[in-house]
Simulated scan of single mutants.
Amino acid sequence: MKILILGGTSNTKADKLSKQLIDGCRKKGVEVEIITANIFTSDLKAIEQKEKPDVIVLVGTKKLDTTLPVINGLPLVYPWMGADKVIDEVVKYNK
């Protein structure tokens, strides 16, 4: 399963969120591949065409123009919101 993490975070923070998501999904028996992109400098349509992600984990509040499922990724940044909710949502889209 391929996931696009889209947000305005630094590369270091994006790497941390990627690892958290990979580890959480692996614990639920789902292997994932992560692609990260900056929401402010990336062309979402170009990424979708090139990388063909299954879902987008959005770390932010911007409204996206996409047909892909968009999962609220803010709980990955703010653990008190329940990061497991994000992982459960991702796993739900596993084919």
Rank of each mutant, 00 (worst) to 15 (best):
Q49R: 15
V32M: 06
I22Y: 04
R26T: 00
M81L: 15
L17F: 14
K63T: 13
I87M: 03
K45I: 08
L74Y: 10
P75L: 13
L64H: 07
K28G: 01
D84N: 13
L17V: 06
D54M: 04
D43I: 15
K27T: 01
I5G: 05
K28F: 00
K95E: 03
S10T: 15
L68A: 05
Q49K: 15
E33Q: 11
V30Y: 00
V90Y: 01
V86W: 14
Q49L: 15
T67P: 04
I34D: 01
L58V: 05
M81T: 12
N38L: 14
T67Q: 12
L74F: 12
G73I: 09
L17T: 04
D65I: 08
V59A: 06
P79T: 08
M81Y: 15
P69I: 06
K28R: 08
I71L: 07
V91E: 00
T12F: 14
I87E: 01
V91I: 01
I47E: 08
E31I: 03
K13L: 10
P75Q: 10
L76P: 13
L21R: 04
L64T: 06
V30L: 01
K92M: 01
Q49T: 14
I3L: 07
P53Y: 05
D15H: 12
V90N: 01
K2A: 03
G60I: 12
T41G: 05
N38I: 13
I47Q: 07
V57H: 08
G29I: 00
E31P: 02
L4M: 06
K95W: 01
N38A: 12
L4A: 09
